[in-house]
Design a protein around this nucleic acid. Structure first.
Length: 577
DNA sequence: CTAGGGTTAG
């Protein structure tokens, strides 16, 4: 292969990684294999990076395992790939092989990745170990690693330690400043956070957002709004950013004062973000207002854009205005010549399936010009469940299987659908099918920290000696839930089931296991902390709220995106504790 | 070729 085609190909693969275009990336990979160049130069490391960034962690690992000789870059790439796939425990689990197998010591890139993994667990104990090793290594003055340490200590609520590391950074760049500001903001110290921001030499979107979101969380909508306006006056900061706008909208929503609300309305119109405002109003369930705002826009000659329609259809969906929503969707295409994007389809499908128009939703999914992703199917399936359209649910599941026979998530969705319907024979049929086809899926897992001890649970698996006590505890909690008027999801309906079926139902969710185990263990005083990588939703949410209310103990759960804080029957969610 | 920082909602 000529040098020309090597650099060219490499550059293409890098571009695919940067823009996350896995479709082309895979093609280039196939081409590289065809040339017999899979182990040439920087190809393998770059491919690991590509697959990591696109969330195809198994492909990344395959490339990594095939390499006859790995260097520091290979290790940094695979470890950060695990971080990006939100599997920080696997990052830390694989790392020891770096010296036991490949006899390499971590470099500054690997250190930064490890610290980030510890931060996403909020695991200070491990984080401090890594910090110790970093200090005695030859890389101990690397500022990037120090930034990640600042973030790690902030997320573990050790704001003092974060500050010490922060002060030791010689040249503080915006990443470092933002990590520190966000630490103070999340810990409720808005004043310190604000002061730091003002001391920051070059502020950017990240630092502003970190501060504003912290202030919104503290319930100071007015201050947050003031900061938002201040940020707007700043030179060179583009405001049309979904992150900071959603903070501003949340701040506006917090403002009970109507007058202020109106001013903000004007302000947003002046800025030209009617669309986003409609979205904000819609989110708070005031569909009528959103729709009349839309009419006002049209009568003033303002042309609605594609964002406006997302907000409008979303509003209809939450208010159950099916006909209006359908009309808007069609009018967007016919009257405004806006080609619906994936998010329009998502809203529209949400509208149809919430209101029980499942057959229509199914047709739309089949005919739309986008490849429906797993969440789309999952949403349709759960709506089928809600509206008791079992047959359609099964048809959707089978359709999914026919188009993606190699995708493990299809099988999981199907077996869950059967499980919900109590069709246990079919469940085991699907499981067997997966086994014979050697299809595996990383199981869901949770782990619970109680002081020094930590215990991991995989969905559906539980140590034998814990089986009985945990099962009894969960059943007792379900009874309590029903007593308080909560209508449990079907996965909590247990009558008419034999023991084995009950176990299958109850042990499906690893966080339930973790909660129950935490309760068993912490008879007095200890707060329960659960960290997991999936989203906390639905019943698990209710379950945790209940446990919080009957134990008067604090339960802190960190899922893939945020913290959930349960105590005395109430729950608050957010980026801070 | 590889590393570090920011949303909303239930």
């Amino acid at each position: 292969m000529s040098a020309f085609s090597y650099t060219h190909l490499l550059r293409h693969v890098q571009a695919c990684a940067k823009h996350r275009t896995i479709f082309h990336g895979k093609k280039f990979h196939a081409h590289i294999i065809k040339l017999g160049a899979e182990q040439c130069g920087a190809f393998p490391n770059t491919l690991i990076d590509l697959y990591g960034k696109c969330g195809l962690i198994r492909c990344a690992r395959k490339v990594f395992d095939k390499m006859p000789q790995r260097d520091h870059v290979s290790w940094a790439s695979i470890l950060s790939a695990y971080n990006q796939s939100m599997l920080p425990n696997l990052t830390l689990g694989l790392f020891p092989h770096m010296f036991t197998v490949d006899h390499l010591l971590p470099d500054e890139f690997v250190f930064a990745t490890l610290v980030k993994a510890c931060a996403s667990f909020a695991n200070v104990r491990l984080g401090k170990q890594v910090h110790g090793r970093f200090v005695v290594s030859q890389f101990n003055d690397d500022d990037v690693v120090k930034s990640s340490l600042v973030d790690m200590y902030s997320k573990c609520e050790l704001i003092g330690d974060a500050r010490v590391v922060f002060e030791s950074v010689l040249w503080k760049n915006s990443v470092c400043w933002t990590a520190m500001i966000s630490g103070y903001a999340r810990n409720g110290e808005s004043d310190e956070a604000t002061e730091l921001l003002h001391r920051m030499p070059v502020k950017n979107l990240f630092s502003w957002t970190a501060l504003i979101s912290g202030v919104v969380q503290s319930g100071c909508g007015v201050d947050a709004m003031k900061l938002f306006m201040e940020m707007r006056r700043e030179e060179g900061i583009r405001i049309e950013d979904p992150f900071v706008l959603s903070c501003a909208i949340a701040a506006a929503a917090n403002l009970a004062a109507l007058e202020l609300g109106k001013q903000i309305h004007c302000f947003v119109i002046v800025l030209g973000y009617e669309g986003q405002l409609v979205f904000g109003v819609a989110q708070h369930g005031q569909a009528e207002e959103a729709l009349s705002m839309f009419d006002e826009m049209v009568s003033k000659g303002l042309r609605p854009n594609e964002v406006t329609f997302v907000g409008l259809i979303y509003a209809c969906s939450h208010a159950g205005l099916v006909a209006k929503g359908r009309e808007l969707f069609n009018s967007m295409i016919d009257n405004y010549h806006i080609k619906p994007a994936l998010q329009h389809y998502t809203c529209f499908l949400d509208l149809l399936s919430r209101s029980g128009h499942l057959a229509e939703a199914y047709e739309v999914v089949k005919t739309m010009p986008f490849e429906p992703d797993e969440p789309t199917w999952a949403a349709l399936l759960s709506a089928s469940k809600l509206h008791k359209k079992t047959q359609l649910g099964i048809r959707i599941a089978n359709h999914l299987l026919s188009i993606k026979p190699q995708d493990p998530s299809s099988y999981i969705l199907i077996s869950n659908t059967y499980a919900v319907e109590g069709m246990w024979e079919d469940v085991s049929k699907v499981r067997k099918m997966m086994a014979t086809m050697a299809i595996r899926k990383e199981p869901g897992y949770s782990w619970v920290n109680l002081g020094k001890e930590s215990q991991t649970f995989y969905a559906g698996e539980i140590p034998n000696h814990l089986k009985q006590p945990v099962l009894m505890l969960i059943e007792k909690l379900i009874v309590e839930m029903k007593k308080r008027g909560y209508v449990p999801d079907t996965s909590f309906v247990l009558h008419d089931l034999d023991n084995q079926e009950k176990e299958q139902q109850l042990f499906q969710h690893s966080e339930r296991l973790a909660v129950a185990y935490g309760l068993l263990k912490s008879i007095s005083g200890t707060n329960i902390r659960i960290v997991k990588n999936l989203r906390i939703c639905g019943d698990c949410h209710a379950f945790l709220t209940l446990v919080g209310s009957i134990t008067h103990r604090e339960i802190i759960v960190r899922d893939s995106t945020r913290y959930h804080h349960f105590k005395d029957g109430s729950c608050s969610c957010g980026g801070f504790w």
